[in-house]
């Protein structure tokens, strides 16, 4: 396995609870990897273990092939971490904030000035160089925190809920910034529960719940594996009775779990079957005299996928 971030059988126990229960993760280099899960799923704990802030109870966690438990100092040099909740130092200017962290990473003074200017330009805070950090808006502080993770030009960025608390404009700006960072070759592991945002941004996702990865890979690939739980939308010609007759036909089919008429007249089918079986269903409907105008799988989004994966039946299907 050649993933730049990898966990295997990762476990973190606290007294009375298991936060991470044998989590396996594999993030390829250069990805924006979404870490999706409900509150308490173990996302933050996993990120904190990878960031060397927590010791795992058992299992393996590696960044760029380095075991975070055996060699945390080396891991700290190659990753940047942005926690979900962070504070700012009082009485500190924006450039001083970045200068402090650059010193912490041992960046030579000759490089610091230029680097601070470049980073502030990257996060669009160039005009706030001499402003006090506590005077910045939440979105600006978020971008500054992101800039601080970049002072040592890390290969991997671990961002825990980076968009939480941001207004829509700040979210769009953050999204653009993350895309830019990916184009610079960074691997970004980003946890969030704002799923539509991750869907637009991420190249791959891992859906976690109860400390375990339920599904992992590209959104389209996960969807393929979950075809047994697909939603079909059918539009038939005609009105009223014709639509109800079509609904009754589909409802009587063995593979159809549910059939409902939507407000726009379409029929939504909960379908348990693969592509071949859905093609057979269409053929039978046409053969039965139903005038099908359109028959398509409902465009599945990450939110829907997440709900499917974290539901009991789908968990079994994924397993």
């Amino acid at each position: 396995m050649s993933g730049i971030v990898r966990t295997s059988g990762l476990i973190k126990r606290y007294p009375g609870t298991v936060a991470v229960a044998g989590l396996d993760l594999d993030v390829a280099e250069g990805e924006i990897f979404g870490f999706v899960g409900p509150n308490g799923a173990g996302k933050t704990t996993t990120l904190r273990i990878l960031a060397t802030l927590l010791k795992p109870t058992a299992g393996l966690a590696e960044v760029a092939g380095i075991d975070v438990r055996r060699n945390p100092d080396a891991v700290r040099r190659i990753l940047g971490f942005m926690p979900d909740v962070f504070g700012v130092y009082d009485d500190m200017k924006v450039w001083e904030y970045l200068d402090f962290f650059a010193r912490c990473y041992g960046i030579p003074s000759a490089r610091r000035r230029q680097m601070i200017g470049d980073l502030l330009d990257l996060v669009d805070l160039g005009d706030k160089r001499d402003a006090y950090v506590q005077g910045l808006s939440r979105g600006m502080q978020q971008r500054l925190c992101l800039a601080h993770t970049l002072v040592h030009d890390p290969q991997v960025l671990l961002l825990d809920e980076p968009a939480s608390g941001l207004d829509p404009r700040a979210r769009v700006e953050l999204r653009e910034l993350l895309r830019e960072l990916r184009s610079l070759g960074k691997t970004i592991l980003i946890s969030s529960h704002i799923l539509p945002e991750l869907e637009e941004l991420c190249t791959s996702v891992a859906i976690v719940d109860h400390g375990q990865v339920l599904a992992q890979g590209r959104v389209a690939d996960i969807e393929k594996r979950l075809r047994y739980g697909a939603v079909l939308r059918v539009r038939v010609l005609g009105e009223g009775e014709a639509i109800e007759a079509a609904r009754d036909f589909f409802a009587a089919e063995a593979r159809v779990a549910s059939a409902a008429i939507l407000d726009d007249g379409q029929i939504e089918l909960g379908f348990r079957g693969d592509d071949a079986e859905s093609a057979d269903l269409l053929a039978r409907a046409i053969g039965d005299g139903i005038r099908v105008a359109s028959f398509a799988r409902a465009a599945s989004d990450l939110e829907e996928l997440f709900l499917q994966v974290t539901s009991g039946n789908a968990r079994e299907a994924v397993a």
Partner: peptide, 8 residues
């Protein structure tokens, strides 16, 4: 946390 993830 920001300080703890530096190599200091």
């Amino acid at each position: 946390d920001l300080l703890a993830v530096t190599p200091i």
